[in-house]
Design a binder for these strands. Sequence first.
DNA 1: TCTTGACCTTCCAGTTACTGTAAGGTCTAC
DNA 2: GTAGACCTTACAGTAACTGGAAGGTCAAGA
Lengths: 134, 134
Amino acid sequence: MQISEVARLSGLTTKTIRYYEEIGLVDPASRGVNGYRQYDVGSLGQLRFLARARDVGFNLEESRQLLELLRDSGRQSAHARSLVLEKSDQLQKKIDQLHDMQAVLNNMARRCNGDEGPECAILDELAGQAGPLS
Amino acid sequence: MQISEVARLSGLTTKTIRYYEEIGLVDPASRGVNGYRQYDVGSLGQLRFLARARDVGFNLEESRQLLELLRDSGRQSAHARSLVLEKSDQLQKKIDQLHDMQAVLNNMARRCNGDEGPECAILDELAGQAGPLS
DNA sequence: TCTTGACCTTCCAGTTACTGTAAGGTCTAC
DNA sequence: GTAGACCTTACAGTAACTGGAAGGTCAAGA
């Protein structure tokens, strides 16, 4: 399999796949006689794993740890579980934060005329309690 | 007011304030005889505005646009309103995405023993449909 | 007066996780 | 033989800061 096929199947870009190889996140791909990278299903699986982990909110370092757990034949599920639960907590915090942001934004929009005039609560809201701006 | 005071009152760091000046997001601060940056309430207000906008999820370019709307005496509230509503939509998408991620994580954790053995659905789940990894 | 510590300054390098671009090699089809 | 779609490496750039070095300034205390 060539790199663009792996990209298609994993949802990563070819750039990203080469980048992951470059930083040692995955083993270097084997090469064909023409020097092109060749991938098997195992490599594809690892890249899919990484794409999925990233998508779910793990950063590269965390994804690397998970991938190591996966590759480790004597893998410790307790470790994986605590990583995942920790990440779930982080996601909840992020969700709450985004909800708050959205409430602020919707409240702003609701109190804004939306016509061509200058009367808009949005800008005043963002300006906050600091008094008039220059 | 010196920069550290402004930092304290705005919630930005001194580094960030200098950075915002460097990239032209705010006008260069006036300087005292010693060369130190001097701020008035107007400058503080602008920086608070930016801190708030960033906090609410606008990136620097969007924040810059909002700040310009604020400074523009003939400001167009419709523009501000559409920016805010668009951002709110983006936030909703992000929130939905995070909810999905969290469901995946929680599902993984639920199906994982959590003991020291290798039987853990988390890693298999992340590996997805790609078959066994190398 | 000297010194200490907390400020302030500029400049340059590093961070994360890529993305873009250039310059060139390879392969397949017409 | 040539066009177009692949592939390669290498280097630079992105956002939005952050850290650190090297040094100037200022107020308080011995």
